[in-house]
Amino acid sequence: MPSSTPLVAFVIGFGPNIGDSVASLLKEHGYAVAVGSRNPDADKVRKEGYFPVKVEATRQASISAAFAAVNAELGPPNVVVYNPAIHQEPTDLSDPSTLPLDTFNDVVAIGSNVFVAIQEALKGFRSGKHENHPKAFIVTGNILPADNTLSPFYFSLDIQKVIESRIVGQFARANEKTGLRFVYATLVGDDGGIPPYDLFLKSGDLHAQVYWELINSKNGLWDYRFTLDGKKLANYVSL
Rank of each mutant, 00 (worst) to 15 (best):
D223E: 01
N216H: 13
I194L: 14
D205C: 00
N216G: 01
K202M: 02
K218S: 14
D223N: 08
R181I: 02
A174H: 15
L214C: 02
Y236L: 03
L187R: 08
F171L: 13
G179Q: 09
E176R: 14
P196Y: 07
L180M: 12
H207Q: 06
G189V: 02
S203R: 06
E213W: 11
W212V: 01
G220V: 00
A174Y: 14
A185P: 14
Y236N: 05
K202Q: 05
D198V: 04
G179H: 06
G192D: 01
D190E: 15
W212K: 10
G230S: 05
L201K: 13
N235C: 11
A185H: 05
T227Q: 07
V210P: 04
K177R: 15
Y236R: 02
D223V: 07
N216V: 12
D198H: 06
H207T: 05
S217F: 07
V188G: 10
I215F: 06
T186N: 02
Q209G: 10
S217T: 15
A208T: 04
H207N: 06
Y224V: 00
Q209V: 08
N219D: 14
Y211M: 06
K231E: 12
Y197L: 13
D190L: 07
K177P: 00
F171M: 13
P196H: 12
V183L: 04
L199R: 13
A174C: 12
D190I: 01
F171Y: 14
F171V: 11
L199T: 04
L233W: 04
L199W: 06
S203K: 03
D191G: 09
F182D: 11
T178W: 12
P196F: 08
A185Y: 06
D198I: 06
N175E: 15
D205Q: 08
Q170N: 15
L201S: 11
K177M: 03
D229P: 07
Y197S: 09
D223A: 02
A234Q: 14
G220W: 00
G179M: 10
A234P: 02
D205N: 13
G192T: 02
L199A: 10
D191H: 07
P195T: 01
G189N: 11
L214K: 00
